[in-house]
Amino acid sequence: MSQAQEQPNPPDGHDPVTLEVVDLMARMVGLFHKEYEDAASARSLTGAQAKVLGLLRLGPLPMRQIAQTLSCEPSNITGIVDRLELRGLVERQADPGDRRIKLVAATEAGGAASAELRESLRFAREPLASLAPDERDQLRDLLRRIVDGAQQR
C-alpha cells in the first residue's frame, strides 16, 4: 500500500497536495483571465461584455440571472447590455412567461463575436492536446465534480 493510500486527506483540506492543487488552479485562472481579457480587447470588448456574450451562448437570459452569475449589481449589467445593444450584439426581449422580465439575447452578430472570441482562446488548448484522450476525459470529469461540489455549497 502506498503512503498516499495509508494517510487519508485531512478533513479540512490542508494536506500538501490539496494546497498545491489550489495554488495551481489559481495560476490557471490567472493565465486564463489574462488571455480572455486580451481576446476581448482585441475585439473592442471589455471582459465583462465578453462574459455576457459568452453566457448568452446558451440562449436568452433574464438580466437578473446574468448579474447573479457574474456576481455583480444589476445596474452594472444594464450598462453592459446598453453598450452591447448599441453595437448590435444583443437585444432585449420581453419574457413570454412574464412580460415584466426583460431577457437579453445575443443577436446573430453577437453569437458570431462570442464564438470567434471563444475560438481564439488558446490558453489550455495545446497543453490539453498533449494529454491522451482518456486523460482529458478524466480531467474533465474531475473538474465537473469540483465545480458541481462548489455549486452545492
Rank of each mutant, 00 (worst) to 15 (best):
M25N: 02
M63H: 09
R87L: 11
P96Y: 03
R136W: 01
T18D: 01
V147I: 10
D38M: 06
A105G: 14
F32W: 12
L24P: 01
S71L: 11
R145K: 12
A50C: 07
A106W: 10
S41L: 11
A115Q: 13
L24M: 02
S75D: 06
A26M: 08
P16T: 06
I66M: 11
E20Q: 07
E73Q: 12
N76F: 11
E37R: 15
R140M: 07
S75Q: 06
D137R: 00
Q152K: 11
R118P: 12
R92S: 10
Q138I: 04
A48M: 07
G47E: 02
Q65W: 09
T69F: 02
L19T: 05
Q152E: 12
R125G: 06
G54F: 08
R125I: 05
R118T: 15
V29Y: 08
S130W: 05
D23E: 07
I101R: 12
L19N: 06
R136I: 06
L61H: 09
E126P: 05
G110E: 14
L70I: 05
E119N: 13
A39N: 00
K34E: 15
Q138S: 05
D134G: 00
R125P: 06
D95V: 08
A115R: 13
M28K: 07
V29D: 03
D95E: 13
D148L: 08
D137S: 00
S130Q: 11
M25R: 03
G47C: 06
Q93P: 08
H33N: 07
G97I: 01
S41C: 03
R27M: 09
L53P: 10
S114Y: 11
L53T: 10
R144I: 15
E126L: 12
R145F: 11
Q65I: 10
L84R: 01
E37Y: 10
Q65M: 10
Q65L: 14
M63T: 11
R43H: 05
L128C: 14
L31P: 02
Y36I: 01
A39V: 03
D95S: 13
S41A: 15
Q152F: 06
A150T: 00
